[in-house]
Design a protein around this nucleic acid. Sequence first.
DNA 1: CGGCCATTTGATAGTCATCAACTACCGTGG
DNA 2: CCACGGTAGTTGATGACTATCAAATGGCCG
Lengths: 264, 264
Amino acid sequence: MPDQGAPACSLCLFHPVCGAAATAAATAPAGTRLRPERLSLRAGDYVVRQGRPALTVYPLRTGSAKQVYESPLGWRQVTGFSLPGDVLGLEPHEAPQHGAAAIALQDSEVCAVPVESLRELMAAPAFRIAALAVMRRNAERERVLLVAVGSMKAPQRLAMLLLDLAGEQARRHGRQDSTLTLAMSRADIASLLGLTLETVSRLLSRFASVGLIAVRQRRLRIIDSAGLASIYADLDGGAQRPAREGDPGAEFAPAMAMCRGPAS
Amino acid sequence: MPDQGAPACSLCLFHPVCGAAATAAATAPAGTRLRPERLSLRAGDYVVRQGRPALTVYPLRTGSAKQVYESPLGWRQVTGFSLPGDVLGLEPHEAPQHGAAAIALQDSEVCAVPVESLRELMAAPAFRIAALAVMRRNAERERVLLVAVGSMKAPQRLAMLLLDLAGEQARRHGRQDSTLTLAMSRADIASLLGLTLETVSRLLSRFASVGLIAVRQRRLRIIDSAGLASIYADLDGGAQRPAREGDPGAEFAPAMAMCRGPAS
DNA sequence: CGGCCATTTGATAGTCATCAACTACCGTGG
DNA sequence: CCACGGTAGTTGATGACTATCAAATGGCCG
């Protein structure tokens, strides 16, 4: 067992050049191997603070984190969640300061990579490409979130998040066991989606009552992935025209009765 | 009159190296001067299309444009407006494809700069810094928008936009004459802010009726800039607790009665 | 002048925030 | 080990906010 990294290390941006990983020996030039320091975090710890100089980036080994952005006027909002393999504090456009805070959602471990190392690595085309791809991915994510918050109804937003979390989980742990652990609170989810925690709680209950998911506290299992997807995908957000008699398609309408409140 | 550029050319990212500008002779190395081709656009023309290869960037000389992002599932949303001096189609993270469409809001003029030229220019530290700053600015803008759409009430969002437009206008035309021309339709504004066009129209009317602005069609004048700012800045979105008797501050509450609907 | 589109305005109701209990969970300390 | 307190989460009642539907008005272009 040469690779002593956590399971998700193989997804880390730095994995190919990480001295702690066996693969590095083969692919990385001798001089560029990293021996990152490791840090342990407790739930709630700040990994990076918004506005502070960006001196270090922190690949997440285990645990999870949230990004929190505070607008110039003091509005605060969760802008994303991070799972092992993600890089906390990685700023796009070579920003000299962190654009958002990163906060551990649970006891977690991170590596600490100085930005100088990062800058040197960026000189290597292969690494550079990978790093830029990660940043683009993050940017795209934020845009999807913007559209979700700006145009979609609450059930769709939540369905989107659940599917996204499941997808990320699958990307890491291989097979999708469809069982997630929500490391974030309802309030965090609500902030991300532009809702209130009560609404999130209610929707989760409603999803569960219709058999889409099973949820108990922070343990969640996706039962009907396709159902969630149909809620998410539903353009026009489950709009309810007066439902004239003989309305074609009324007898179908898969699971997106979700958007219509409790079954009367 | 050596500088033949449009007034806003001096704000263009490429101005220091633009062969059409007199200043370029002084600051730019001989080999890197640009002679960008100019294009004329009609209202509604696509400058760049989302997903198409990013081969050219288009500094906006005159007119205005909107960015429209379409999510993977087909949700479409305006993500920003551009004014002269902005660069259309400029993709962050060296993205090979355009991440959003840019559409002229009125008859406009743009320059066409090949990405190869851009790439060469990025080698020069001064230009690189400026370009990265522009991209960071754009990213920050999007995040502010995300928070606005996610957490703020409709009147705040609109006040924010008006102040922003006024600020951008002032940054270009020097003194703020406080008179803007809204090149975008109500529907575009609504899409940007995550509202409907009716709500935007109503709010504009309401703002006007309270003396914050004067608006007739697409001609708008800001009368009480501070009043708009107080609406925008109001944390907790003008929440109305039951207003107990003797509630301190009730007799104040500047212009943010806006958030409470028509004066009863 | 007529048609078309953008905008305004009104009426209505859906969605979701807000306020308020209530319950479940978790770690702590007796 | 169990009682306890505090936090997180659930559920209900209510109504504000804003979407939706509908119609009228105004401006612009052919």
